[in-house]
Amino acid sequence: MTRIGIDCRLAGQEHAGIGRYTQNLVQRLVLNKDINWVLFFSNSTQAREILPQKLDHVKEVITPIRHYSLLEQIKLPLIFAKEKLDLLHVPHFNVPIFYQGKIVVTIHDLLWHEQRGSHVTTLPAWKYRLKYWGYTETVKKAVEKAAKIFVPSTTVAATLAKYYPKAKDKTIVTYEGVEQTYLDHEIKEKPRKKQLVYTGSLYPHKNIKVVFQALQKLPDFSLKLVGSRNVFQDNTKTLVKNYKLTNQVEFLGKLSDKDLIKLYEESFALVFPSFSEGFGLPGLEAMAVGLSVIASDIPIFREIYKNAAAYFNPLSSAELLETIHALNSSRKFLTKAGKDRVKSFSWDKMTDKTFKIYQQVLKQNHA
Rank of each mutant, 00 (worst) to 15 (best):
C8S: 09
R9V: 01
A11L: 09
Q13D: 01
G17H: 10
I18G: 09
R20L: 04
Q23N: 06
V30E: 00
D34Y: 03
W37P: 12
F40V: 11
S42T: 13
S44G: 00
T45C: 05
T45W: 03
A47D: 01
A47K: 06
I50P: 07
Q53A: 02
K54Y: 03
T63D: 00
S69F: 06
L70M: 09
K75Y: 11
L78W: 12
H92L: 05
I107P: 02
H113E: 15
H119F: 09
T121R: 00
T122K: 07
L123I: 05
A125D: 10
W126Y: 13
R129F: 08
Y135W: 08
V143L: 07
A147T: 12
A147M: 12
F150S: 07
D169G: 15
D169K: 15
I172Y: 08
V173R: 04
T174W: 01
E179G: 05
Q180T: 11
T181F: 00
Y182G: 13
L183D: 08
D184S: 13
I187V: 11
E189K: 15
R192P: 07
T199E: 01
G200Q: 11
S201R: 15
L202K: 09
Y203P: 08
V210W: 13
V210D: 13
V211H: 05
F212V: 05
Q213D: 14
K217C: 00
S222A: 13
L223N: 04
K224N: 00
K224W: 07
G227D: 10
R229Y: 09
N230V: 05
V231G: 07
F232H: 02
Q233F: 04
D234S: 07
D234Q: 07
N235E: 14
T236C: 09
L239C: 01
L239I: 02
Y243I: 03
E250T: 15
F251A: 12
F251S: 11
L252H: 14
L255D: 06
S256Q: 14
D259F: 10
K262C: 08
K262F: 08
A269W: 12
G283T: 02
A286P: 06
G290F: 08
V293F: 00
D297E: 15
I298C: 06
R302N: 10
Y305Q: 10
Y311W: 04
E322I: 14
L327T: 15
N328I: 11
S329C: 07
K336Y: 04
G338K: 03
R341V: 04
V342M: 13
D348Y: 00
T351Y: 02
K363W: 07
Q364S: 00
